[in-house]
């Protein structure tokens, strides 16, 4: 029992990071029906911003987190403005190729600065408590609580504010919405800023939990977050959160009860089966094409 509780806590930590990154994929897809494959690398840039700010500016955790989020969000907006906007009406394949190119650029740019894995200094003095045999570290709690808080804030923005309404409207019908006086470009930039900012936050938290960072760290995590978004139903924000937690739990639990070698095999097989029964993901809805 204690063993399962401990593993559940591990799953919650991993899942909340996947969920945060998955939000970026799903938001951009929702509004532009485009998959931003550079998102995993923006997550990596977030971790490197955290490293640079913590080492060179020597700031504490909260300003480091905010500055990193701001930095990645600005980068996201710039990328959208210069790489994706000119292709908004081009075939979707071009936009995807551009996104892959941006991702490779970010990886290799970071690689060119320094090929060495970097170490993020301890920003939070983690203490470990023993609650009836389950080890809980303060770092774990901070990561889980902060991720959940960010997700609730996002959900509030999207569901309850005017900006959120504009976002939902654009994802509904991009051609009619401008006629209603919604500033489409501004809303798209804002969506990118929020999505990539959350990716940046995930980068910082990932960097704190796993403090050795390298330019390639975003690839695998990015793919897994993308899969989380698809499982939850890409384009659906609550779906992305659920997908992240599902993938995190499956990964941890498979390794917990089977030989850890089978982890990726079993977890991806489960996801494939899930997609056979729910091809649009858990919360996704089919979009019939009008002829």
């Amino acid at each position: 029992m204690i063993y399962i509780l401990q593993q559940a806590l591990n799953a919650l930590q991993l899942g909340s990071i996947y969920a945060l990154i998955a939000l970026g994929y799903t938001m951009v897809y929702g509004i532009l029906t485009m998959i931003n494959f550079a998102h995993g690398d923006l997550f990596m840039v977030g971790a490197f911003f955290c490293f640079l700010i913590a080492v060179y500016l020597k700031l504490s955790f909260v300003p480091t987190l905010l500055l990193s989020m701001l930095g990645v969000a600005s980068l996201g907006v710039i990328i959208e403005r210069f790489a994706y906007k000119p292709l908004r009406n081009a075939p979707r394949v071009s936009a995807i190729i551009t996104a892959l190119g941006v991702g490779l650029f970010l990886e290799n740019f970071t690689l060119a600065l320094s090929p060495y894995p970097q170490h993020i200094p301890t920003l939070i003095n983690s203490t470990t408590w023993n609650l009836g045999g389950v080890s809980v570290s303060s770092l774990q709690i901070i990561i889980i609580v902060l991720s959940l808080a960010l997700m609730f804030i996002l959900d509030f923005i999207v569901q309850r504010t005017k900006v959120g309404m504009a976002m939902r409207a654009i994802s509904w019908d991009k051609t009619i919405v401008p006629l209603m006086g919604v500033p489409v470009n501004k809303i798209i930039s804002l969506t990118f800023a929020i999505g990539t900012g959350l990716g940046g936050a995930a980068g910082v938290m990932y960097g704190l939990a796993y403090p050795v960072i390298d330019p390639y760290m975003g690839i695998m995590v990015g793919w897994k977050a993308f899969i989380s978004a698809v499982v939850g139903g890409i384009g659906n924000i609550r779906g992305a959160m659920i997908g992240g937690f599902i993938l995190g739990s499956v990964e941890i639990m498979v390794a917990a009860f089977l030989p850890s070698t089978y982890r990726d095999v079993v977890s991806f097989a489960l996801l494939l089966i899930l997609l056979i029964f729910r091809p649009y993901g858990i919360l996704g809805k089919p979009h019939p094409q009008k002829v």
Binding site: Y3, Q6, Q7, N10, Q13, L14, Y206, A209, Y210, V212, Y216, M217, M220, V221, E251, I252, M253, A255, A256, P259, S260, T261, R263, D264
Partner: peptide, 18 residues
């Protein structure tokens, strides 16, 4: 216990080891 190159999260395996 095992993992695969580039893994960063070992919590599941380490819990098992513990």
């Amino acid at each position: 216990e095992t993992y695969t190159t580039n893994d960063k999260d070992f919590s599941s395996q380490l819990t098992k080891i513990k």
